[in-house]
Each structure stands twice: as C-alpha cells, then as structure tokens.
C-alpha cells in the first residue's frame, strides 16, 4: 500500500466519514419498530414509505453529522412516543361531545399527546449546554416524524392537531428564552 502522507490523511478522512455513515445506519434501528407500528395500525403503503424514509433520513443525517444533532435523536424519539402510542390506544368508534360538536377520541388525543411531546422537548432543550435551538429543531423534527405514525389513525387532522399541540407545548420555553 505505502501511501504518501497527504493521501493517507485524505483516505483516513474518507474512511472516518464512511465509518460515521455505517454507525449512523446502525443507530437508526428505532425507525424499524416505529415503521412496524405504522404497518400494524394499517397505515397506507405510501404513508409508510414516505414517513419511514423521512424518519430514516433524519436519524441517519443527524447521527452522521454528530454533536448536538446526534444528541437530539433519542429525546426526539422519546418525545414522539406519546403521539405515536396514545391515539392508537383509544377504542375504535368512541366519540365525545365538546362544545356541541362530536369528536373522535383519537382526534382529540393527537393534540394532547403533541402537547406532552412539546412540553417534554421544551424542558429537555432548556437544560442543553450550547446550541439549544439546534437541539430543539432536531428533536422536534424527529418527534414530529415519529408521532405522525401514531396520529395518522385520525387522518390529516390528527397530524395537524399533533403539530399544533407540540408547538403549544414549546411555547413556555420560547417565552422564557424571550424574557432572558
């Protein structure tokens, strides 16, 4: 082999990046059970493919990039767990009356679980040392992609409700950051 000093350094850099990509692929294993849950909830093939690809791309990209982005993966996945799991637990065809209109439980549970996710992320991000905004963006995008697999049972309104609940949950940290 006997590479020159410069080509050895260049090859080491290339090999390091390839190793990071391999490591990122291995670290993205939680995407498999999340997509599996989507299939279990009878999500459409297109949704499973697109949603799975987005979540996989996000986790691989963040893990490969490293540092704050990488640290945002697990909090994002954990924050996405309530909207992923809770709406699916509501009994089918169960409704309630709110303000004179009929709402399916699963539709109501999506903004609620989104709110829980938003509050959790806000609390975790506030404890982050350095680049909390980067952390928040990374974790929130992973949480949204994860939660979408659960709130899909309530249709597009379920996903929109989850996102709105999540943003509402993040409000306290935004207000606090504004005050500081």
């Amino acid at each position: 082999m006997a590479l020159t000093e410069d080509s050895l350094r260049a090859q080491a850099a290339r090999i390091y990046e390839a190793g990071r990509l391999r490591h990122a692929l291995l670290e993205s294993w939680p995407v498999v059970p999340i997509v599996g849950l989507g299939v279990f909830h009878r999500a459409s093939g297109v949704f499973v493919l697109v949603g799975g690809a987005v979540l996989l791309a996000l986790t691989i990209a963040f893990s490969w990039r490293g540092l704050t982005w990488r640290r945002a993966i697990w909090p994002g996945l954990l924050a996405g767990a309530p909207p992923l799991l809770i709406p699916g637990l509501a009994p089918a065809n169960s409704f309630c009356w709110i303000g004179g209109s009929c709402w399916a439980w699963c539709v109501l549970l999506c903004p609620l679980s989104g709110l829980v996710a938003g509050l959790t992320l806000g609390a975790v991000a506030s404890r982050q040392q350095g680049r909390p905004l980067q952390f928040l963006i990374g974790a929130a995008s992973i949480a949204a992609a994860t939660g979408a697999f659960g709130c899909r049972v309530a249709g597009a309104w379920g996903i929109i409700g989850m996102l709105a609940g999540g943003l509402l949950g993040l409000l306290p940290i935004q207000v606090r950051a504004g005050l500081h």
Partner: peptide
Amino acid sequence: SEDVAQEALLKIFARASD
C-alpha cells in the same frame, strides 16, 4: 511495518465512531 501501520491507522479512523 509502514504498510501495517497505515492499515492500523485507517482501521482506527473507520472505527472512531464506535
């Protein structure tokens, strides 16, 4: 020795993430 040292260095950078 030179070849083996280079091989080892590249292996270390390949596994640096682990």
